[in-house]
Amino acid sequence: MIEMTAELPWIAAVPVALLLLIGAGLTLVGSFGLLRLRSFYERVHAPTLGTSYGMGCTLLASMIFFSVLQGRFVIHEIVIGFLILVTTPVTLMLLARASLHRDRLEKNEQVPPPR
């Protein structure tokens, strides 16, 4: 295990800790939904918890941490955030459409027919 050595003032450490816990908690709940929800179309909704505010809180914690640690604005985490924000909807949309296509090919009654 890597040892934690960075000493932060309380005013920064408490928000960082809270944001980390909230972000990780949302990610956990989202992935738990992946396990728990019953149909594929319901499960599509679950990971967005992790990719919206789960990711946002974790990245914000990282930004605050490094900004305070290095004494300057460290905001390159925004790049990851933007990337995930733009790419996740594309992936999920393609997956939902692929799944719909396959279900229709198999004449699955639960999906709406093509118009």
Binding site: A46, T48, S52, P89, M93, R97
Partner: peptide, 22 residues
């Protein structure tokens, strides 16, 4: 709009018909 709808947990954009806008 598709990005907004899909990024929101609880709703997902599945299919869009560009001809009649459904």
């Amino acid at each position: 709009l598709a990005c907004i709808v899909t990024a929101t947990p609880g709703s997902a954009w599945v299919e869009f018909d560009p001809e009649d806008g459904q």
